[in-house]
Nucleic acid binder design. Sequence first.
RNA 1: GGGUCCAUAGCUCAGUCGGAUAGAGCAACGGCCUUCUAAGCCGUGGGUCGGGGGUUCGAAUCCCUCUGGGCUCACCA
Length: 577
Amino acid sequence: MDYKLTIIDYLSDELDLDRSFVEDVLEVPPREDMGDFALPCFRLAKAYRKAPQAIAQDLADKAKEKGLNDRMDRIEAQGPYLNIFLNKDRYTADLIRYVLEKQERFASSDEGNGKTVCIEFSSPNIAKPFHVGHAFTTFLGDALARMYGHLGYDLERINHLGDYGTQFGKLIVAYENWGDQEALDENPIKELLRIYVKFHQEVKDNPELEDQARARFKALEEGQPREYALWKDFRELSIREFDRIYDRLDVSFDSYRGESAYSDLIPPLVEELEEKGILVDSEGAKVVMLDDEGLPPCIVVKSDGSTIYATRDLAAAKYRYDTYKFYKNVYVVGLPQSLHFRQVFAVLKKAGYDWVDNCVHVGFGLVKFPEGALLSTRSGDVVYLEDLLDEAVKKTKDIILENNKTRDEVMTEQEIEETSQAIGLGAIRYTFLRNGREKDIIFRWEDILDFEGDSSPYMQYAYARAKSIIRKSGYTEEEIMAFEPVRLGEHASFVLAKSIAQLEESLKQAVKSYEPSIFARQVMTVCRNFSRFYNQMPILAAPDEEDKKARLSLCLASANVVKTSLNLLGIKTVERM
RNA sequence: GGGUCCAUAGCUCAGUCGGAUAGAGCAACGGCCUUCUAAGCCGUGGGUCGGGGGUUCGAAUCCCUCUGGGCUCACCA
């Protein structure tokens, strides 16, 4: 199915062009009347001592002499470009056969075999609600993990729970001052949030509360029973809540090792850094100086002797390398923490750990309100992820009930429920995957609940339409797979086939740059091309049975790749909607 | 102030290892439900690619500079 390779072979073997040059410059033209591949001849001008236009013309003439192979239709010069047109019938047929043979293994690979990727994502803070801000890391990380998996990598999905740190000192202080055991039993996260917000209100008038909080965290770190018991309680109540949400989101983890899990590894780590002579005393704290890297010092041990997040990230990274011998160690954490990761990586480098070169911070933008205000747990100004999901599901359900009045295939109660969940959750997921991850997301209900155009429901709709056509065709999918995909060289089918073929490359690109949006956009392009295709070319009412069968095979191939692709983004497909 | 990222259509964004007339979606306007689901399709209008300089046969893309903005800069995470 590799047409690009065929073209490269032809240009280098038959037209005597330098192979590496061809590989380097061969491109896909911006418009269709410029062909399917194009060779810009500018860079040949010097060597040939001729105008690029003339070179392109010479090459076109030479191709005419030599003849083309059966995958090509024609080669012509257009200005300084040599434009290559493929045999559309042949191309579409090849693509369909390829897709139907691969099934759900389409775009998969074995490039990752034997390599383990650790991917840290989601990582909510214990005792705080799961709000829309957590959605970004959760969906981004989950999509990346799914894509790595498809390329054959072994995965270790790590939820680095924020289950440690001074915030727990704050919670302990807050709980003892204003906590309500009854409310805690009834709705733990809500009560913990209430007292956490209360703490931050009170601390304005009572700055010494901060010192109390630090002291209580230190006591927790020393294993004092009162502090430990409270912490453990808060932690367990919170995890139970998170698990429920992950279950609904269809997100899973291989490890819930949070920050607290690295306590035992920290003393030997500190000792090691001291022995290597990179840990120095500064203003009562122990720090690693990073001036030579142009970075501020990295605090490893605070002046009161307790640890800080950097300490725990250092220990966690080392633990991961020792445990998994990772090929890559990926941190899906917000962009504001870039400096933190640069410091942590720099310290590990200074400690002589070369594997730090395989650690990568995959940052992403903020979720903000239109007024520009940040979503903040402290101020209590949050939108819970669950409320957002419920809203999206409810809107979907309303649309389905409305459509049910006019459509001939009526859904059962259960199908309505399942479909609404799939569409609603898909819409939310896609909101976080459609754009470059470093872009901020402005939280607007109208935008997030817009199910038209560039949205997940659009893609799910395209899939549902394909399946509906197949259901009504009178043929089973097994039968359709055996059909000859003939006479599919028309514009709409050819464009669709080409966009499907590009999914493979875009998946690799997306993984390489830790950017699911690259793949998501290509899936969107395929869905759009499919919508055009079936609107333009009647399938069930095709001119004759041969055409009908061929179009059905393209329809089935499209449905298959869309399902596989959406699954890689964590978006479920539905048979009708 | 230092670091870092960004500025493309009214809005939200693609395109940025330099290449052919800068693309989508939304919004606006105009068509298409007696033919496979209108969460759809077709069409129209809309752009000094933040400003200025430079490199180049060629710049949204590379360099310099200015302006405007986001995030961040030691004991929170």
